[in-house]
Simulated assay, not measured.
Amino acid sequence: MVVNLDNKDELEATDILVRFYNVDNPIIISIIQTDSVSAKSFSSNFLNDSEKKSTDIWAVVTFATALIGFMYLPLLFVPICFISSIISYYRLKDNQNLTGKGLRLTGAIINSINILYLMYTFDLGPFNPNN
């Protein structure tokens, strides 16, 4: 889609782009202004550049420690994973620009399986034969 802005201003061009963006069309939009020195090209997601989401580092730590604890040293990594999972939960809850909910949840589930395995290994809780 090419929008020719012979006598239009930047605000109207932005309005056209917003209306086009709301259709969720991934086509690249080119705006050519005859009065300006340069031509501007915007992709359909240029409006959200300031709202880029990043992955929460504590969600990554939760997932990584859950995997490492599941494979190598569960006694060391289970508490680290549990604490980082709680930190990640509250960071993701408070900050909408962070992603990683799936990583945190997957790490917490793997850590829960790991805790059950440790309880079974050391005959604790419901796995204790003396209960």
Rank of each mutant, 00 (worst) to 15 (best):
M1D: 06
V2F: 07
V2H: 04
V3L: 08
N4Q: 09
N4F: 10
L5T: 07
K8D: 06
D9M: 04
D9P: 00
E10Y: 03
E10Q: 13
E10F: 09
A13V: 01
T14E: 08
D15E: 04
N22T: 09
N22K: 12
V23E: 02
V23F: 15
D24G: 06
I27G: 10
I29W: 10
S30I: 14
I31M: 06
I32R: 05
Q33T: 03
T34Y: 06
T34S: 08
S36M: 13
V37E: 10
S38H: 13
A39H: 10
A39V: 09
K40C: 00
K40V: 07
S41A: 11
F42W: 06
S43D: 12
S43R: 11
S44Q: 03
N45F: 11
F46M: 02
F46V: 04
N48P: 00
D49K: 13
D49I: 05
E51W: 10
E51M: 07
K53W: 10
K53G: 02
S54H: 14
T55K: 04
T55M: 10
T55C: 14
I57W: 01
A59K: 02
V60F: 03
V60T: 13
V60Y: 04
F63K: 04
F63G: 02
L67H: 04
L67Y: 04
G69Q: 02
F70N: 11
L73S: 05
L73A: 08
P74I: 01
L75R: 09
L75G: 11
L75H: 07
L75P: 11
L76C: 13
F77E: 00
V78W: 03
I80V: 12
I80M: 11
C81H: 02
C81I: 12
C81Q: 00
F82A: 02
I83R: 03
S84P: 03
S84Q: 03
I86N: 02
L92E: 01
L92V: 03
K93Y: 09
D94A: 15
N95C: 02
Q96N: 09
N97D: 08
N97F: 15
G100F: 00
K101S: 06
G102I: 15
R104Y: 03
R104C: 08
L105F: 05
L105I: 11
T106E: 07
G107N: 00
A108I: 07
I109D: 01
I109C: 05
I110H: 01
S112C: 11
S112R: 10
I113L: 15
N114G: 13
Y117D: 11
L118A: 03
M119F: 10
Y120F: 14
Y120C: 13
Y120L: 09
T121D: 15
T121G: 06
T121I: 10
F122D: 06
D123M: 08
D123N: 13
L124Y: 13
P126E: 15
F127S: 04
N128Q: 09
N128D: 14
N128H: 05
